[in-house]
């Protein structure tokens, strides 16, 4: 496969043709903040945290879905990008009830980690404080909509890794929510295999194993990439 040469943050790197900016950067040790991206499932470009500047393009582009080209010049970190990313996080924290102190994912939460990484020490927007429910009907797992950031990772692993199609997004706009089957209690789902991949995929405390303490909520997300690799390439690389 042909390789392309490009410049990321002033550093000349080469990557295979058709690679995304995110992949090329990661392979070369350059970290770009992401939230909806998840190794093992396709990208949707929804969270807008991985936006980067590309020379010659006025628009900011999501690194996860933008393919590289020869001679591309990418800036992944600038004052402007950091400001937009911080604002994106502030919007997320204000949108639902992310109360870290009483969250099961406290300390293992990607949203928290991003806030620290971007120096978001407070939220300037009005908290919306919506009234969202917790679905604790499933025998082993729970869904707390208060913590959901609608990254759709759970939907994607359910459809494309597990193949069950139990979860989906319903409604739209800020009223969007993750549902099981026909908006039924998760525990009543006739399609859920209880495989737990959605919990593994969830970046926050929205999906959790019942009974886990905050200290036990560590998630080994590399398992998802492992399964996909094994299935698609017949390579079991632990």
């Amino acid at each position: 496969m042909a390789a392309k040469t490009l410049i990321i943050d002033g550093k000349q790197v080469s990557a295979e043709n058709h690679t995304t900016i995110l992949q090329a950067a990661t392979d070369n040790g350059i970290a770009i903040p992401t939230l909806c991206h998840l190794e093992g499932v396709y990208d949707v470009g929804a969270c807008r945290l991985c936006i980067v500047e590309v020379k010659g393009t006025a628009k900011l582009l999501p690194a996860c879905t933008t393919r590289i080209y020869e001679g591309m010049e990418v800036t992944t970190d600038s004052e402007r990008l950091r400001k937009y990313r911080r604002m994106t996080l502030e919007l997320l924290f204000a949108e639902r009830n992310h109360i870290c102190a009483v969250c099961v994912a406290n300390g293992h939460c990607e949203l928290q980690a991003l806030a620290y990484g971007l120096g978001m020490d407070h939220v300037r927007y009005d908290y919306c404080n919506p009234a969202w429910a917790v679905d604790a009907s499933h025998r082993f797992m729970g869904m707390d909509h208060n913590r959901c950031i609608l990254c759709t990772r759970c939907v994607r692993v359910c459809w494309h890794i597990e193949g069950a199609g139990t979860k989906n997004v319903a409604g739209r706009g800020t009223k969007s929510r993750i549902i099981s089957d026909l908006n039924e209690p998760w525990g009543d789902s006739t399609t859920c295999t209880s495989c737990g991949k959605c919990v593994l995929a969830c970046p926050t405390g929205a999906l959790f194993h019942k009974g886990d303490t905050a200290g036990e909520s560590v998630r080994d997300r590399s398992k998802l990439g492992f399964i996909v690799n094994a299935r698609e390439k017949q390579q079991w690389t632990v």
Partner: peptide, 20 residues
Amino acid sequence: VSFGDCAVTCNVTSLRNYLG
């Protein structure tokens, strides 16, 4: 200085907010 989560984010004290 907003000192601690309650001052910064309202934290647990805000749990009554979603009741309206």
